[in-house]
């Protein structure tokens, strides 16, 4: 796997919120940095005890939002970013319902609304730059790089300072793995991350059903059509017998 990702080390975060401001600038988001994810805040830094942590799109390797979008407005780029094309979107908001991290946000008060979420500064990546949040972080708490390499770093840090981290790289396995990886001094369930997420990608749950549709249509068509034919044929024969006529009786 050669895609990019982010490694966010909560033990290194000092809560300066430079990433939030940089994110706003890079994505032209209105207003001052808020305290929760919204259409104008793609990332937030929050505090739990004396630990600062960050919320943002995890950029899943097998993304649920991409799989549920009926018009393909969401897409996973080869670089790892999940991008969004508002011109395709028709606003069903299934991505918001389905996302295991509840990341996509909506412009509820616009006549022409779109979904808003972090796109890993895709245009910056294309230009060979880092996402704004990683680029601006003074502590290196958010680090940009190839996912494989970041995973190595994460495990090395946990192994070297076992008392500083809990032994879990969030995003290594969750829902099939995510491009954004997190390591933390406190349990992820304490900072609002679900600990019930399966390692299996969620899109498999619907695909196991959807892939059966052609079979259902063909088998169902033959069975129901067959039943009709049998019943109809019988009735025709009955009519023929009772009429005592030859030839086809029109149904």
């Amino acid at each position: 796997m050669d895609s990019y990702g982010l490694l966010i080390d909560f033990s290194a975060c000092i809560g300066c919120k430079a990433c939030m401001k940089a994110c706003k600038e890079a994505n032209n988001l209105p207003g001052d940095p808020g305290d929760h994810l919204s259409y104008s805040d793609y990332t937030v830094v929050k505090q739990q005890g004396d630990v600062f942590y960050r919320q943002m799109c995890m950029h899943c390797l097998t993304p649920t939002c991409v799989s549920v979008c009926p018009v393909g407005a969401m897409a996973k780029s080869p670089e790892g970013a999940i991008t969004y094309d508002g011109s395709k979107c028709f606003g069903c908001r299934y991505c918001m319902v389905a996302c295991p991290f509840s990341i996509p946000k909506y412009e509820w008060n616009k006549a022409v609304p779109v979904v808003r979420k972090c796109i890993l500064c895709y245009s910056r990546i294309k230009e060979g730059k880092e996402p704004a949040c990683a680029w601006v972080c003074p502590m290196g708490a958010t680090r940009f790089g190839k996912r494989d390499r970041l995973l190595e770093i994460a495990h090395t840090r946990i192994a070297r300072w076992p008392d500083r981290y809990i032994d879990h790289v969030f995003g290594e396995q969750e829902v099939g793995g995510t491009s954004v990886l997190m390591i933390s001094p406190i349990a992820f369930s304490d900072i609002g991350m679900r600990n019930t997420l399966p390692n299996e990608p969620l899109p498999n749950l619907t695909w196991t059903i959807l892939r059966k549709i052609p079979n259902i249509v063909i088998t169902g068509g033959i069975v129901v059509g067959g039943v009709w034919w049998v019943i109809n044929r019988r009735m025709e024969l009955e009519k023929e017998n009772s009429n005592g006529k030859e030839g086809k009786v029109e149904k």
Binding site: S67, V68, C69, P70, V71, G72, A73, K88, C89, F90, G91, C92, R93, Y94, Y106, E107, V112, P113, V114, P203, T206, W207, I209, L210, I213
Partner: peptide, 26 residues
């Protein structure tokens, strides 16, 4: 009423994503 951009309601007919249940529903 519910779709954010209902004038795009025809999009599933030309923009395919057979992995989406919503695509099937549409």
């Amino acid at each position: 009423f519910d779709l954010g951009k209902p004038w795009n309601i025809w999009h599933p007919m030309v923009m395919y994503n057979p992995h989406s249940v919503m695509f099937e529903v549409a």
